[in-house]
Design a protein around this nucleic acid. Structure first.
Lengths: 137, 137
DNA sequence: TTCGTGCTTGACGCTTACGTAAACGTAAAG
DNA sequence: CTTTACGTTTACGTAAGCGTCAAGCACGAA
């Protein structure tokens, strides 16, 4: 085995695509939008752990229904440099904002799950009624 | 007051738009896609409680990041007729499916909230460090 | 009758998030 | 040397989800 040293592992675009089940096109598109900035070895892209983590964050953001623009802001928060005070205050503000959004989504999920449970109950009732009416017609 | 009888209340398209803070265009678009089926009084659309509820469900679905096609399936589950056995089994299957998706989303939210909390901690630390270094230079 | 208000139906435009070729480079394997 | 695998850029296509006119009807008030 070649890469037996755990530190400083890298991946090709195809490896990342397979691991996260996205297309190469998608990964390149995210780079186009500035969300990923892989190293270049010649013309080929080489992805470092940082890129891999970011891709994971991007896809999680997508599952949550954020747009790529919003995801860009969120992900960039994660490895922002300390910076000046105004910047930090802005960041804290963003955090508050995102948190509120996420909590709204969580409430939506709870409600939807509750609704689904209701539909399921009704459904099972209908089903057993249907079946018992068939057993003794 | 005109509509003093609570039962069988109806709304105009503008009323619904105001209440849910969407545009008329959006509501008509949902109708176009078969998600809403208001009554017609002449040419004007008249929305019944059922339509209003559905609009609420649609918007909740949107906040959760579902596509309109997916939302259509979900919402239609809610007021599906009992139907035949195959239909009911299909419905239960859909419910299982949606539930799994929603639970994944909930996990995503928990993780993101945890990440945000971490960023916030780091951020506050940086901020206080910055300020204390300014107070005693 | 004319005005304003609210509603209607097209129909074209735009952005997002990719899909889908087309055409080419590079490097190892047969 | 040719094939195969893997990568690249460029660029047009598309589906979703509306925005934004344009043009017109219907109806009560002035």
């Amino acid at each position: 085995m070649h890469n037996s040293q755990v530190s400083a592992e890298t991946w090709s675009i195809a490896e990342l695509a397979t691991e996260y089940d996205v297309t190469l096109r998608t990964i390149r598109f995210y780079e186009d939008r500035g969300l990923l900035t892989p190293e270049r070895r010649g013309t080929a892209r080489v992805y470092h752990p940082r890129d891999k983590v970011r891709l994971g964050l991007i896809l999680r953001g997508k599952r949550l229904g954020f747009s790529l623009d919003e995801i860009a802001k969120i992900v960039d928060m994660y490895d922002a440099e300390p910076g000046e005070e105004g910047q930090l205050v802005y960041l804290l503000d963003q955090i508050t904002h995102r948190r509120a959004e996420l909590e709204q989504r969580r409430r939506d999920i709870e409600e939807t799950l509750a609704d689904l449970a209701e539909v399921e109950t009704r459904c099972r009732a209908d089903l057993s009624a249907l079946r018992s009416s068939l057993r003794k017609p």
